[in-house]
Design a protein around this nucleic acid. Structure first.
Lengths: 419, 419
DNA sequence: CCGATTAGTTTGGTTTCCGTACGAACTAAA
DNA sequence: TTTAGTTCGTACGGAAACCAAACTAATCGG
């Protein structure tokens, strides 16, 4: 029916509010006059918009200009207000639930990691547990007086972001599970009525987290590679996660990298996952510690720790297997680099603790298979966000939406100016 | 310095003009009232905006409502005006120059294909030849009274779209060639002063052409695969070409598909280009017709025709080689499909005349290597735009920019209403 | 011919940004 | 201490754009 979004005066103001928020975020502390010069808006417009952002707890004044003494009236410094707002991220995965709350500068206020088998528990019990974690977070004194911007939920699978539904999450064995409604209801019981609830793919949110909060912050074109039970990719294009036509996409686990290689769970041969998935790595590094059946969550974490210990102590078998896996990862990363030309490819999940032994071979393989001239720094990095990346991405995506003027502003904390 | 685009009243109007243009394009013929209902704008606003679009030659009234008779005053039908505007696309490639002019509904008004060796001629002489083609097009009676929206130039290589410069085009042996300035100067000599000149990558523009004009029109997530001397990909995400961090990207020619396969010109083994590039195909189908040295432009075209003839007449060697190449193409296409989840992958260039024998094996390989559930129709298609795809994309990208309110509107042809 | 219905225009109002002017706050120098 | 110069932030009128509602126009059914 509708084919686009109409504009109006309200859209203008919303867009400019986001523009100013971004400008202050980048330059803080800075004065209104600096913002006006940077954005091209007039000083009077900036004054009006900054006033509203202050009233809503998004910006604050931070005393006079410290330091350099220049001629003329000194400006009043502005900065992002990190005391009024909280954004909450939540990740459901096969073997754990993670919750993270951040402030407007994306510093962590609260985080909790809970072992939890969402597959065995099923959607209903999982939502129940998520609600309990939310209640725990909201009860924390650091969040007490804050306005909650929203809750972003990361799920390993296919998601319909418009309706907040998990369409297809094979690892969780969830199909067509509506998450937004139940979680919003749980929030309402906590007294938070109209708080937005967003549901998204974990790899895409991992990429958002790296874009906004990791040590690569600000990089708008990057790929985040998950290293959980499967291997997935979250592709960020211009700061926006790529979804594809149907919401599938980011599937790189079964990219064929080694024709005639070992058989993969999908029935084919030589898939990336069969060569560099966490199960394949562990079979190469610590075969003596693995159970006979399929690998379960906690066993993986233990085996990964053991692998890291052995590699650190110089174990040749472990190091060799890691270098080999790193090379396969690098070949796949080179395909991504050639096709997408990202600024960075970030390895997440269980790849992080193993990165010291994966990365050298990986980078060499990338260099050997990349067409474009090499860039300044390294292309492949290990995530600094660890297992909290997707949850942080859930929270960060809300702050990002606010920054871009795509989220309703939080309510005024001071009364509106005379009207 | 600047980190975003400010909004103002003008931005609102521009955006809504584009919104209405798109709405009419989709629904034509339709009345102002229908447009208002579809866009959410009020009737008065639609009236004002439609008036401006008519004055500028983008829309026109098309008599009363034909056909169905309903109660009430009948609306005045609106449609996209295909008589006032022309958009010009130009493609420079290794062995030819192509120019295409289209109207606002993207019907072809003029097209010319010229054998031309841009590599031997160099940038200066190439621009000269492009100017001559432009003059020829502008002299055509079908373009006589039209306002020229702009000129979009497709180049096989890396481009800085912001400055209109060819940064790096190895096949042309062009480096840091400024195209916008000289072409704009040539247009100015034709009396077209302020006509926008856009320079972009040929694969990306091929994708735009398929998105807007091919038989897949309207598909916003697709990949266009060029089949010229090299193999490149143009990736369209939400209707916008993906550029990547530096403008590289779309490089799939050297994706490793066959470890231990034949040696490629890049020094590696088993690249897609070495398996399914046009040179590799021709070596498999018509080895007896090929010269000893490297393949030049016209010789390729002849050999491709011969290949098609032999395959059509049932030649087993030709058909076998084409099926094999199709399978390699399909393996690469499956990687793209898994990563990007496009609605379609379109084969262009020299793949088009060979498509009847490439596609069956290609589609089988895609089906065998794709993870996501299959969609309704076929995923891989042959382009219907042939060698004119990139040039058409150059023109179509300007119409697209107009549709999205990203192009200055053409001047009024009627005086502005009383003011 | 008249009411009902739908289409499109006109008029007045609101919102938002912009341009200009002005007071406030500070430095520099006599 | 005074004066000039500079910069910051705010206030006010104007312009541009959309919206709401009233109004005119055209057609159908009776």
């Amino acid at each position: 029916m509708d084919d686009g979004v109409k504009s109006g005066q309200h859209a203008v103001r919303t867009s400019n509010l986001g523009l100013i928020l971004r400008a202050v975020r980048r330059r803080a502390p800075c004065s209104r006059a600096e913002v006006a010069a940077a954005t091209g808006l007039t000083k009077s417009t900036v004054s009006s918009l900054v006033g509203e952002l202050i009233d809503r707890g998004l910006l604050r004044e931070a005393g006079a200009a410290a330091g350099e003494r220049r001629v003329g009236r000194p400006g009043v410094m502005l900065e992002v207000d990190d005391r009024s707002i909280a954004a909450i991220g939540l990740e459901v995965n096969v073997d754990y639930l993670t919750i993270v709350a951040v402030d407007l500068v994306e510093r962590e206020l609260f985080s909790r990691h809970a072992d939890f088998d969402a597959r065995a528990a099923g959607p209903g019990a999982s939502v129940h547990r998520m609600a309990a974690l939310l209640a725990e977070a909201l009860a924390d004194p650091l969040l007490a007086e804050r306005t909650v911007l929203g809750v972003g939920i990361a799920v390993p699978g296919l998601v319909d972001a418009a309706t907040g539904t998990v369409t297809h999450a094979p690892n969780l064995r969830w199909h067509d599970v509506a998450l937004r409604g139940p979680v919003a209801a749980a929030l309402a019981r906590q007294g938070l009525g109209a708080v937005p609830v967003a549901v998204d793919n974990d790899a895409g949110l991992g990429a958002v987290a790296e874009h906004r909060g990791g040590h690569l912050a600000g990089t708008p074109d990057l790929v985040y590679v998950t290293g959980e039970v499967g291997i997935g990719a979250g592709v960020l294009v211009g700061g926006v996660p790529l979804r594809g036509a149907r919401g599938y996409g980011g599937e790189i686990g079964h990219m064929p990298v080694d024709r005639g290689g070992p058989r993969c769970g999908c029935g084919r041969r030589g898939c990336l996952e069969a060569r560099a998935g966490i199960a394949a790595i562990l079979r190469g590094t610590v075969p003596d510690l693995l159970p006979d059946g399929p690998l379960a969550g906690a066993a993986i974490a233990r085996a990964v720790r053991a692998t890291a210990e052995r590699a650190a102590s110089g174990d040749a078998r472990a190091r060799g297997a890691l270098a080999e896996a790193g090379e396969w990862l690098g070949r796949a990363a080179a395909v991504l680099a050639n096709l997408l030309d990202p600024s960075a490819i970030v390895l997440g999940g269980y790849f992080v603790p193993l990165a010291p032994w994966l990365l050298p071979a990986c980078e060499a393989a990338v260099a050997a298979h990349t067409i474009a001239p090499p860039r300044g720094g390294a292309l492949v990095h290990a995530s600094t966000l660890g297992l909290r990346a997707a949850a942080r991405g859930g929270a960060a995506s809300l702050v990002d939406a606010l920054d871009r003027g795509r989220l309703p502003l939080p309510p005024r904390r001071r009364p509106a100016p005379r009207g």
